[in-house]
């Protein structure tokens, strides 16, 4: 289903416009909301690509928790609307944009001059669980060590975040 241009082009257009909105919006909350839009549309594109579990996880984790945190933090900060959000200096701006432009041009050229593309697999049946089952087998059998290390990493990150942002006082402070 992802090879269908009716699905791909509108979604890709919205994702591209939303990403540009993150860059160019002057109010940071509008940047965050454009980021939310691009995350949600990317989640739907992952669903269309046949990675059903990852599309659902993208919607639930990225679009549903991480960007909510971004928006909440920005609303708590209550920043004033910045007149010139983009860094000053004409030469530095030009150098930055042009270096990224050269990078993008190189890779686009490399991709478009490729003579051999992998043959697209037939579209996965949307009501089958095959891709999820293969993902689960890969995670829990082939790469189980990395999976467990990821769990330990997340535990360390959670402890670190709580200890960085603790404040004295509050209803349950016993010190």
């Amino acid at each position: 289903m992802a090879n269908n241009p009716i699905v791909f082009f509108p979604l890709a257009f919205v994702i591209a416009v939303a990403a540009l909105g993150v860059l160019l919006a002057s109010n940071p909350i509008f940047s965050a909301l454009f980021l939310v839009l691009s995350m949600v549309c990317l989640g739907f594109m992952f669903l269309a690509m046949g990675a059903f579990f990852l599309g659902g996880v993208q919607l639930a984790v990225y679009a549903g928790a991480v960007t909510v945190l971004f928006v909440m933090v920005l609303m708590l900060f209550d920043l004033k609307d910045n007149a010139n959000p983009i860094a000053k200096g004409l030469l530095s701006r030009f150098l930055k944009v042009s270096s990224i432009g050269v990078f993008v041009g190189l890779i686009t050229g490399a991709v478009s001059l490729t003579k051999y593309y992998p043959v697209p697999v037939k579209a996965a049946d949307p009501s089958s669980m095959e891709s999820t089952r293969v993902l689960a087998v890969g995670l829990f059998r082939d790469y189980v060590f990395a999976f467990e290390i990821l769990g330990v990493l997340l535990l360390v990150i959670a402890i670190g975040v709580v200890s960085v942002s603790r404040i004295k006082g509050g209803t349950h402070d016993r010190a």
């Binding site: 989640g43 659902g56 996880v57 639930a60 949307p126 009501s127 089958s128 669980m129 999820t132």
Partner: peptide, 12 residues
Amino acid sequence: YDYGIGIVFVLG
């Protein structure tokens, strides 16, 4: 629509 991942999509 009937995706095979009903629960995860609804939670998301």
